[in-house]
Design a protein around this nucleic acid. Structure first.
Lengths: 153, 153
DNA sequence: TATTGTTATACTCTATAACTATA
DNA sequence: TATAGTTATAGAGTATAACAATA
C-alpha cells in the first residue's frame, strides 16, 4: 500500500489540509480562550444550542466516555453555562440544557470565530471559493443544523 | 461588526472549513492514539524530524509555555522518543533531538495519517482538487519543509 | 440483568510563579 | 541583570474500573 500516484497533486493537498485544519483550530481555541472557554466547552455549548440531550448523547456527539462528560458538565454547570435535570420519563437519565447565559456566550464565541475565519477566507481568490466549498462538503457532507458545527462527524 | 454580505458563499465556506478541520484533526488524533501518542507528542516529533532545537524554540513552534515543554519532553524522553543534550556553546541551553525510535514512530504515524486523509480526499471530485490546494495554500501559505506540517503557523 | 450516570483514580497537557544556573 | 530551563502547584480534559440507582 505504498505508491499510488493516481493524482499527482494529492500529497500537496493532504499537506495543505493538515495545515489548514491547524489554522482553523487555532482560531477556535484562541477565541474560545478569550471567553474563558476550552474548545470542548465550546463544542458542548454548540450541541446545546438547539437540543437538551441526555449525558450519554453528549458523550456520543463528542466522542468521549460518559465519565468524561460528567466532569465536563460539572465544570460548565459550576460556571452557570448549563444545567442538569432528571428526565420525567426515565429517572436514570439526566437531561442537560444551556442556561440563557450559556446560550449567549455560545452565540458570541460563534460570531467572533466566524468573523475571524472570514478574514482568513478573504485571502482565497474569489474564483476558488465555490470550488472550496464543494470540495470541503464532499469530504464532510452537507451542513445539518444552523451555525458552526464544531464536530468532525 | 455584524452583517457584511460581501460574498454570498462565505458563511457556507466558513462552516465547511470548521467541519473539515475537525475531520482532519480527528484523523490526526485517532492515528496518533493508535501509536500511543498524543497530538502534541506527534507535533513534537514532527518538529524534531529535521531539527535539533533548544527547548525555547520548541515552545515557540508549538505556542506553549517553556514549562509545558519541559513536561512534554520529559514524557517523550521517558518513552525513548527524544533525548536532551546541553549545548556546548551556551550551557544554559538544552538541545532536544529525536532518537532513532522517535524518528521511526514519527514516520509511521505520518505515513498512516497521510494515507487516511488521502482516503478522505478521494471523495473530492478530481476537477476540484487543484482549486482546493490553491485555496488552502492561499490561507496558510506555501509548504516549507518536507512531510506533514503539524502546525497552523 | 442491562442501562445511566457518578465516583475514584491516574495520567497528559497546560499555565503561572518562583527558583537555579549560566551568561 | 537577563536568559534558559526546571520545579511546584493547580486546573482542565481524558480514560478505566467499580459503583449506585433505575429500568
Amino acid at each position: 500500500m505504498a505508491a499510488k500516484p493516481e493524482s499527482a497533486g494529492t500529497p500537496e493537498l493532504v499537506d495543505s489540509l493538515v495545515q489548514l485544519s491547524f489554522a482553523v483550530q487555532d482560531v477556535l481555541a484562541r477565541v474560545s480562550a478569550a471567553y474563558d472557554l476550552s474548545l470542548t466547552q465550546l463544542r458542548l455549548l454548540g450541541i446545546l444550542r438547539d437540543r437538551t440531550p441526555p449525558m450519554t448523547a453528549i458523550a456520543e456527539h463528542l466522542g468521549l466516555d460518559r465519565s468524561s462528560v460528567t466532569g465536563l458538565v460539572d465544570r460548565a454547570e459550576r460556571r452557570g453555562l448549563v444545567s442538569r435535570a432528571t428526565s420525567t420519563q426515565d429517572a436514570r437519565v439526566t437531561i442537560v440544557s444551556a442556561t440563557p447565559r450559556g446560550l449567549d456566550v455560545g452565540r458570541q464565541v460563534t460570531a467572533t470565530v466566524t468573523a475571524e475565519i472570514e478574514t482568513l477566507v478573504e485571502r482565497v481568490p474569489a474564483r476558488d471559493r465555490d470550488g472550496m466549498v464543494r470540495a470541503a462538503m464532499s469530504v464532510v457532507g452537507p451542513r445539518i443544523g444552523p451555525g458552526l458545527a464544531t464536530t468532525g462527524r
